[in-house]
Write a protein that binds this DNA or RNA. Structure first.
Length: 494
RNA sequence: GGGCCGUUAACUCAGCUGGUAGAGUAUCUGACUUUUAAUCAGAGAGUCGCGCGUUCGAUCCGCGCACGGCCCA
């Protein structure tokens, strides 16, 4: 027998009493016809001249609040449209139903029929002519004013968080709108949505620690994908000129306010485009998205103002290091001095790391966090861009950009390398120069090389972190606030 | 992995110099047919995260562990 505390036991006792009165505690026969906030919109409460809809209304929802007067009561009901007030009187519903009403708990679902009116204080309200109990709640809801604050409970029991914290519901509604907007935006531009494998025999497309798994029937090891890139490019080879995928990537690395082991990426590829055209597209898409979601291009994030109005600032990596970090150009021009500079600044570098890697690490440490308004950084060292096309005039840098906003990387894009000989060489170099890290498994994907040998049209491709984009547009400090069920350690039994 | 902080009733939080625990909400009982943090009267509700230690005595001090948060790597 479960050991129940007082409140849980009282709820169960009341449930039994209701059952004894002939109430089906978990019925599924009531069909709501109206959304609560649709017939009782918040603006109607503000505006005394707002005309309430006439006729009988049929709603269903969870009881969030109750104010009882003995023979009458007000309740606040909540459904997916929002909240609204209902009024019940013993005279209106009769003694039998009112007895059942007296057994209701906050948290129960009920269905109500009635008509709309305004109370003496002007609050639009549904006057109940009859109601039906729909679902019993056996646990008490969190406190009605303070809500649920304990972040651990909010993440572990997100259903509670969503139930009682309307602003959390809004964040996830916006997340859905963001993804829908991006889909429509790309489809309008003749991009086709595709799905590529989540389980890869070779972990490729990015340098990251993968999760490993095993297929029993085939007796083969597999990796959860760290990026879909190599498969999407195969589709360019196959003849789909514009493709995109919005899906999960998995990286077996630490957790932080910006990292969850599974996260959502948009990747898209466009044949005959260059990284410069993708900068234009990115500016246009994200600024339009901000208008769609927040009706403004000037948003607040963590107390600072961020202006998403295009055009956005552009720097080459060297320009950013000189102008923002104040590093002398002569250091950047000399591979030995760059590595020495990194070491002087306590940046740990792998023994085989070259000047490009050092430059990137210096950038991460001295520049990244200072890029608050959206900023494109271009001319990345080719050394750290194994899948990108080299610049025609300066092959030491790649035709690549990354986008930074609020000190965070938001997007990474480049003109794609489509020379199979060069690609094979660069991937083999990557394997050869792999670090001492035992948890990454660099391996050349020779089928990808073979695909390039058939000929991939020139193209540009980009990845945008959807979670970080959602953070930006919902003013959320932690990635856990935009992921419905963020990764947590197992709950310890209390 | 390191540093700092947190964990007390279902929820939000107090708890002094170590002396065996409090409030509001929620719940229960009673009153109340237009409230909206409804009101009024009364009541019940706790393994003070877990373990060990110090002490006559630990929610409080020390050590360890678990979970979480923030910062750093």
């Amino acid at each position: 027998m479960e050991d129940l505390n007082e409140i849980l036991q009282q709820r169960r006792d009341k449930a039994q009493e209701m059952a004894d009165l002939g109430v089906d505690l978990y019925s599924n026969t009531f069909k709501p016809l109206h959304g609560i906030a649709d017939i009782l919109p918040p603006e109607a409460a503000e505006d005394p001249d707002f005309a309430l809809s006439a006729g009988e209304k049929t709603i269903a929802g969870r009881i969030m609040l109750m104010r009882s007067f003995g023979k009458a009561a007000f309740m606040t009901l909540q459904d997916s449209s929002g909240r609204g007030q209902v009024y019940i009187r013993k005279n209106d519903v009769g003694e039998d139903l009112f007895n059942i009403f007296n057994k209701l708990d906050i948290g129960d679902f009920i269905g109500c029929k009635g008509t709309l009116f305004r109370t003496q204080k002007g609050e639009p309200t549904l006057k109940i002519s009859t109601f039906k109990h729909i679902t019993k709640s056996l646990r008490p809801l969190p406190e009605k004013h303070q809500g649920l604050k304990d972040v651990e409970v909010r993440y572990r029991q997100r259903y509670l968080d969503l139930m009682v914290n309307p602003e959390v519901r809004d964040v996830f509604k916006k997340r859905g709108q963001i993804i829908r907007f991006i889909r429509e935006y790309l489809e309008e531009r003749d991009y086709m949505e595709v799905e590529t494998p989540m389980m890869h025999p070779i972990s490729g497309g990015a340098t990251a620690k993968p999760f490993q798994t095993h297929h029993n029937a085939l007796d083969m090891d597999l990796y959860l994908r760290v990026a879909p890139e190599l498969y999407l490019k195969r589709l360019l080879v196959g003849g789909f000129d514009r493709v995109f995928e919005i899906n999960r990537n998995f990286r077996n690395e630490g957790l932080s306010t910006r990292h969850n082991p599974e996260f959502t990426m948009l990747e898209f590829y466009q044949a005959y485009a260059t990284y410069e055209e993708l900068m234009e597209l990115t500016e246009d898409m994200i600024s339009a998205l901000s208008m769609e979601i927040n009706n403004t291009m000037v948003i607040e994030f963590e107390g600072q103002e961020v202006d998403l109005t295009p055009p956005w600032k552009r720097y080459t990596m060297d320009e950013a290091l000189v102008e923002i970090a104040g590093i002398k150009q002569e250091i950047l021009d000399d591979p030995e001095k760059i590595i020495a500079f990194a070491k002087e600044n306590h940046i740990e570098l792998d023994a085989k790391a070259g000047p490009g890697k050092a430059k990137m690490e210096i950038f991460d440490q001295f520049v990244e966090e200072k890029l608050i308004n959206p900023t494109f950084i271009t001319a990345y060292p080719t050394e750290v861009s194994p899948l990108a096309r080299c610049n025609d005039d300066d092959p030491t840098v790649a035709d690549r950009f990354e986008l930074f906003v609020t000190g965070r990387e938001l997007a990474n894009a480049f003109s794609e390398l489509n020379d199979p000989i060069d690609q094979r060489y660069r991937l083999e170099q990557q394997v050869e120069h792999r670090g001492e890290d035992e948890e990454i498994f660099p391996e050349v994907d020779y089928d990808f090389i073979r695909a390039l040998e058939y000929g991939m049209p020139p193209a540009a491709g980009e990845g945008i972190g959807i979670d970080r984009l959602a953070m930006l547009l919902t003013n959320s400090a932690s990635i856990r606030d935009v992921i419905l069920f963020p990764h947590m350690r197992p709950e310890t039994k209390k």
